[in-house]
Each structure stands twice: as C-alpha cells, then as structure tokens.
Design a binder for these strands. Structure first.
Length: 374
RNA sequence: GGAGGGGUAGCGAAGAGGCUAAACGCGGCAGACUGUAAAUCUGCUCCCCCUGGGUUCGGCGGUUCGAAACCGUCCCCCUCCA
C-alpha cells in the first residue's frame, strides 16, 4: 500500500481527529495543510523552503502539467517528484476542478470534458481514464478521482445528474487505476448544498472502498454557515479509519472549523496567493503589509511568529519590497503565510492530543473576532 | 539675433470652441482573493460642508451665449540657422 492512514487520537472534548498518513515518501501528521504547487512549483519557494513550511506533503495539478510541459517531458524527468526535486509526499489533483473554474469554455459529456486550452486555445478532451493515466505518469503518492465541481447553488436536478455522473466517473477512475499499489486513489464527494445527494455520493463511494475520501464543491462561494452545516452533516457519515480531505480550504478560520468537523487534510492556494498580493496571515487576522500604515513600522509581520521572516525583517522593509516590485517580497510573504498555517495546524494537533480542542476553537474565534456559531 | 516646435492634474500623454473636472498609461490610496488562466483583479485618485458646490489646462488681457481649445501680449522650455 502506497499510503496508510493511522488514526491516533480522537479529542474527547470535541471529537476532532489526529493521525498520521504513512507514505513511502515519509510520514505526514494530520490534520495537515498542504501547500499547492500547481505547476510543479510552490510559487516562489525552493524545495528546501517548502520542506520548512509544509509537513512534507504538497499538491500538484494534473490539468496544468498535462498541458505544460506535457507528460513526455515529465516521463523524461522520471515523474513530477524528480522533475521538481521534491522527495517527499505528493498529491495530484485530477483536473476536475478546472472543469468548474474554466466553465465558460467547457462542455461536459458522459465520456469526459471538452474544453479549450487556456493558453493555446486548442480544443481538448479529458476523460476519467485520461486523468488517471496522466496521474500514473506524474507519480504522486495520492491521486484524485476525476469529478465535476458544479456551482454550489446549481439546481437540484442538475446537481443530481452531476453527482450521479461523478459517481460513475469515480468507478471508471477506480477501474483505470486497477490494483496499482504504488499510488492511492481518493474519491470525491459532491452534491452542493443537498444533503441527500451528498449522502448518496458518499455512500456510493464508500461502497467502492477508496483509501481516502475528499469533500469537493465547498468553499466555492457559499456562506460559512452553509459550509459548516454540510461538514457537520458529512462528518457523521464518513468512515472513521480513512483520511478525510476538504479540498480547496485554507483560510485559518475554515481550517480550525474543518478540523472540528473531523477533517484531516486541506489544501488551498489562499496563503500563497494572498502572500503574492501583499496580505499576511497573522495571529488575530490578516495584515495587508503593502498598506501605507506600515511604511515606518519596525515590528515583524506577526510578533507571535518565529519564522525566519518574522525573526529578521520589519513590516517597513517588506512593504518597501512590495511597493518597489521586488521579488523578495513575494517570497518572504509566501514563506511566512505557509509557515503560519503549518504552525497553526501544529497547535491544532497538540490541542486535539491533549483533549482540549473545543477550548482551542473558542480561543481562536475570540482572538480573531469570529462569531461562534457552533 | 533669425526660423520652427512646445508648455494640460504627482509624472508621461490625448484633447484643437459646447457632449471636458478633462481620455489613456504610470505613480499613489484602498478593497478582493479558498482542489492557482492570479507578482492578479476591482474601485478611488484637483479642492470642499461631496447624490451638491468651488477652482483648473504657463501668466495677463481679449473674442464668444460658451474657451484647455480662437486672438493679442508676456514668461519659460526644446531643435535648427547665424
């Protein structure tokens, strides 16, 4: 088995989970946040730096790498990991999300998706089998089923039809994957806001017995209450002994809340993207370091952070880097934001292990002025 | 001394009688960003008691119902000739 999930502890106070994902490329503690390296690169960071700010598990993208540089070049380099000199654990997304995010140029059919390449304009077709074949070539430890991620508030009829197709696609992905032991294939639960569809999707996927289950189609514009409600519902039905992966979530508040609802894995571009746009994640909220108010501020980004950026650089300097367009600014902030989430998740795990996660959540909400609605 | 060209908001640069408080770009100030078409996108950026009012387009003086635009004059800048 390429991956094995060990559930270590369930917080007696909250029910939140703590565990370890054992992979052939190393162990990963959960709950875990995975930085995103879409194009075989966590933007602005070197592999050594990624190791410092991650738990040695990152995500890369099938859609992008298939189109550029293409599977031939990946094969030539021996797979994505040797290609990018990443010797730790890797997860590849299936390309399913791009079907959603590039929706204005796609056509979804039973066989797969027809879409136009966002760079060349070429018309291309991607099937569940293609996605799995490509992911085999990419060589990640964990790979994802090819799904459709419709808008959260799609009508019930469309959503039902979409979920049923996603289930059929999951089956096809599993068949295409075969008995391969070198990679673990996760199924993805869809269904938008409809609990019966979510439940049906989950049950069907569990029936297929995947080594892990992801929740897709959340954090796509719905309200916090809607997301919390769905997570609370699903957590009661997901298999205990399999990792639960909430896709595309990375705001500190959502990580903390997701863990409360039994989530083990998260990925998101938010920390790295916001970093490039000049916003730092800090204790108590966010800090838009490019704002004028920090022009002469000699304090670190986050006085409570011990990352190398916060240990030696002032807000004043980092703001200057952004205002003058220096690449170092993007790098420093990316490093800090990912480190910030790594530390947050470390504290989360400690709180779970010591059976005080409910207290932790309350304290977090208070510190971040979030209304406790749970 | 002579001949041309030009002076527009923080900068660059359109505009050549009313549709112009003045395009556009840069800079500046904010906001957004959640399985990355994203070092991106959106808004604001003369002043004020701001769903209205007040002052602008080198200075001054004219023409006109009306001027950044037309005329006179002065100041300054650039190119060429002597």
């Amino acid at each position: 088995m390429s991956m094995e999930f060990e559930l270590q502890h369930i917080c007696t106070q909250s029910g939140a989970r703590c565990g370890v994902i054992h992979t052939k490329s190393g162990d990963v503690p959960t709950p875990v946040f995975m930085p995103v390296g879409t194009q075989a690169s966590v933007k602005t960071l070197s592999p050594d730096e990624i190791k410092q700010v991650s738990e040695n598990l990152i995500l890369a993208n099938t859609y992008h790498l298939w189109l550029q540089p293409g599977t031939d070049i990946i094969v030539l380099n021996g797979g994505v990991k040797p290609f990018m000199r990443w010797d730790k654990a890797l997860l590849t997304d299936s390309g399913g999300f791009q079907v959603f995010s590039l929706s204005h140029i796609r056509k979804i059919e039973e066989s797969g998706v027809t879409f136009r390449h966002h760079l060349s304009g070429a018309t291309l077709h991607l099937t569940p089998e293609d996605s799995i074949d490509i992911q085999h070539v990419l060589g990640a430890d964990i790979i994802m089923a090819f799904d459709e991620c419709p808008p959260f508030h799609s009508g019930y009829d469309y959503m039902k039809q979409s979920v049923e197709r996603t289930i059929r696609w999951a089956k096809r992905c599993q068949e295409a994957h075969g008995n391969s032991d070198s990679q673990s294939l996760f199924g993805i639960v869809q269904g938008g806001p409809f609990k019966d569809l979510r439940k049906m999707c989950l049950d069907e996927l569990v029936e297929m017995d995947f080594p892990g289950y992801a929740i897709g189609g959340l954090s796509v514009g719905e309200t916090k209450a809607e997301m919390d409600d769905m997570l609370a519902y699903l957590s009661g039905h997901m298999p205990q002994h399999k990792p639960r992966y909430l896709m595309g979530v990375g705001a500190p508040r959502d990580l903390v809340t997701g863990v409360l609802h039994g989530i083990d894995m998260f990925d998101c571009v938010l920390p790295s993207r916001n970093a490039r746009h000049g916003t730092a994640m800090v204790h108590g909220g966010k800090l838009v370091v490019k704002n004028k108010t920090y022009e002469a501020d000699l304090s670190p980004l986050d006085p409570h952070c011990d990352c190398f950026v916060c240990r030696q650089f002032t807000r004043s300097y980092i703001r200057h880097l952004f205002k003058s367009g220096e690449i170092l600014g993007l790098r420093l902030l990316t490093y800090h934001n990912l480190y910030f989430l790594k530390q947050l998740m470390k504290e989360v795990r400690q709180a779970i292990l010591s059976d005080r996660y409910s207290d932790f959540v309350q304290d977090f909400y208070a510190a971040n002025e979030i209304e406790a609605s749970l």
